[in-house]
C-alpha cells in the first residue's frame, strides 16, 4: 500500500458530495491508457451484470412467461394467456394473503420505527456503558430467523407458553395466538420487531450523530423543550435515513416468509386453518410446491412485485412528508 489513506472521517470530505468521477480523465495519449480508461469501468461492473442477468433478469422474464401458462413441473404446459391473472384477481385466498402481509407489515413497521427512534434518541444521550447498550440492542440481529421463530412460537404456545402464563396472572384467558388474524399478526410482528428494532436504532443513531448540535443549542436558547427539539430538529434531519430504513423494511416485510412458516410449525404453507397468517410469499410457495400450479404461482409473484412497487411509492411519499414543514 503505497498511498497511506487512513479511514477518512466525514470532515475530510471537502469537495462537493456528488461527483461522478475525475474532472480530467484521459490526459495520457497512449492507446493502452485510453483503452484502460474506456473499457475498464465496464469490466469492473460486468461481473455484477452478468450474474444478475442469469440469476435475476432471466428468472424475471421466465416467470412472466410461465405465468401465462397452465404450467406443471414435469407435466403439460398449456398457454392460457392472462387467465392466471384474472383468476388470481378474483381469488379470495390471494387477497387474504395480501391483507395478511400488509397487516403484519403495518403493525410490525410502525411500532418498530417509533421504538427505534426512541432507542436511538436514548442512545444518543450521555450515559455510562454506551457500547454495552449498543451491543445489547443489536444482539437480536445476529440470531437467526428460524431460531427466533422457534423461540417465539414456544413463548406464544397456547397451553404451556410463557406469554399466556404471564397474561394469566392478570386474569387473561389463554389465547391461541395462531387462531385469529389479529393475534397471529401481533405474534409474527413481534418476532420481526425483536430482531430488527435494535439494528434500525443503530442506523438512526448514526444519522442522529451527524446532526449539528448547534441547531439544538440555538433551539435551547429559544426555549424549545427537549420533546420539541426532537420532533422539530431530530426527526426532519433524519429523513433520508428514515426513507432508507422504510425502503428496506418494505421489501423485507412484503416478502415475509420464514417467521409465519415456523410459527405454523409444519411447512404446510397454509398459514393457519383459514389462512389467518398466510403471507403472499407463502401463497406463492404453496401454489408452486404444494399444489404444483407453477403458472398461478408465477402470476402471484408478479403481482407481489407490483405490490412492492406500490408499497415503496406509498411509503416514500409518506416518509417524504415527515418534517416537510421545516
Amino acid at each position: 500500500m503505497t498511498l497511506n489513506v487512513d479511514t477518512p472521517a466525514p470532515a475530510r470530505r471537502e469537495g462537493p458530495r456528488r461527483s461522478s468521477g475525475p474532472r480530467n480523465p484521459g490526459r495520457g495519449g497512449r492507446g493502452l491508457a485510453r483503452f484502460d480508461l474506456r473499457a475498464t469501468p465496464y469490466f469492473l461492473v460486468s461481473p455484477y451484470f452478468l450474474l444478475f442477468a442469469v440469476f435475476g433478469l432471466f428468472p424475471l422474464g421466465y416467470t412472466a412467461w410461465v405465468s401465462l401458462h397452465d404450467w406443471e413441473l414435469a407435466g403439460d404446459k398449456t398457454f392460457t394467456g392472462l387467465d392466471n391473472y384474472t383468476e388470481l384477481i378474483a381469488d379470495g385466498a390471494f387477497w387474504n394473503a395480501v391483507l395478511n402481509t400488509v397487516g403484519i407489515f403495518v403493525i410490525a413497521t410502525i411500532p418498530q420505527l417509533v421504538l427505534a427512534l426512541m432507542l436511538a434518541n436514548a442512545l444518543n444521550k450521555r450515559i455510562r456503558g454506551r457500547l454495552f447498550f449498543r451491543l445489547g440492542i443489536l444482539l437480536p440481529l445476529v440470531t437467526s430467523v428460524v431460531a427466533v421463530a422457534v423461540v417465539f412460537t414456544q413463548l406464544y404456545g397456547r397451553d404451556y407458553g410463557m406469554i399466556n402464563w404471564f397474561l394469566s396472572l392478570f386474569g387473561v384467558e389463554a389465547i391461541e395466538w395462531q387462531n385469529q388474524s389479529w393475534s397471529a399478526w401481533i405474534a409474527i410482528a413481534t418476532m420481526i420487531d425483536w430482531r430488527w428494532t435494535g439494528y434500525n436504532a443503530i442506523i438512526l443513531l448514526a444519522a442522529m450523530q451527524t446532526i449539528p448540535k448547534d441547531l439544538y443549542e440555538a433551539a435551547s436558547l429559544d426555549g424549545a423543550s427537549a420533546r420539541r427539539q426532537f420532533w422539530q430538529i431530530t426527526v426532519p434531519m433524519l429523513r433520508p435515513t428514515l426513507i432508507f430504513v422504510v425502503f428496506v423494511s418494505t421489501i423485507g416485510g412484503l416478502t415475509l416468509f420464514a417467521e409465519p412458516v415456523m410459527f405454523e410449525g409444519n411447512p404446510t404453507m397454509a398459514g393457519g386453518a383459514t389462512g389467518q397468517y398466510q403471507t403472499v410469499a407463502m401463497f406463492i410457495v404453496k401454489e408452486a410446491f404444494r399444489d404444483f400450479d407453477m403458472g398461478y404461482a408465477s402470476a402471484a409473484a408478479w403481482l407481489l412485485f407490483a405490490l412492492i412497487l406500490i408499497g415503496i411509492l406509498i411509503n416514500y411519499s409518506f416518509t417524504r412528508r415527515i418534517g416537510g414543514k421545516k
Binding site: 452478468l50 442477468a53 442469469v54 433478469l57 432471466f58 422474464g61 421466465y62 412472466a64 412467461w65
Partner: peptide, 9 residues
C-alpha cells in the same frame, strides 16, 4: 424470442 436475457442463461 420472449426475452433476450434468456439466451445468456
Amino acid at each position: 424470442a420472449v426475452a433476450v436475457m434468456a439466451a445468456t442463461a
